[in-house]
């Protein structure tokens, strides 16, 4: 089954991934995740070119009084990072599914993406786990 460009797929650790073009995906953290974190003040981004296994820590997001880890939603290679975040970490709060993306990535096996939750499933996952 092929993956269409556009829809968002979510991990249980609240990252999303979405196809842009062949072998090019965006990834970021969900709107729910950013709302739990509060104002993001600092972000540690992954390294371009590097490969991470599913579930591996790829970076960190800090608010004033908390630190959250960012995990690879699927096994992937980082193509490029969103360096805008270094100066404008607030993009994660204001536009988590758009200009506040974390990185452009290439899944090692793109069908892994289909194992993640689609939008509706993720929304019910969030409401049942974080009532």
């Amino acid at each position: 089954m092929t993956i269409k460009a556009g829809p968002f797929y979510f991990s249980e650790s609240h990252e999303w991934i979405s196809k842009k073009a062949d072998n090019i995906f965006y990834m970021g953290i969900s709107d729910f995740a950013q709302s739990e974190l509060g104002d993001v003040v600092y972000i540690t981004l992954p390294e371009a070119g590097k490969i991470y296994q599913k579930g591996e820590k790829i970076g960190e997001i800090e608010s004033v009084k908390s630190v959250s880890e960012i995990y690879a939603p699927v096994s992937l290679k980082i193509l490029s990072i969103n360096s805008n975040l270094n100066d404008s970490s607030e993009l994660i709060n204001t536009d988590p599914h758009g200009s506040g993306y974390i990185a452009m990535v290439e899944p090692l096996n793109s069908s892994d993406v289909l194992d993640l939750m689609d939008k509706n499933t993720y929304e019910s996952f969030v409401s049942s786990n974080h009532a």
Binding site: D39, V41, Y42, E62, V64, S89, E90
Partner: peptide, 9 residues
């Protein structure tokens, strides 16, 4: 109220 976001950013 102290702006802690600004302070840390």
């Amino acid at each position: 109220r102290v702006n802690e976001v600004l302070a840390n950013k």
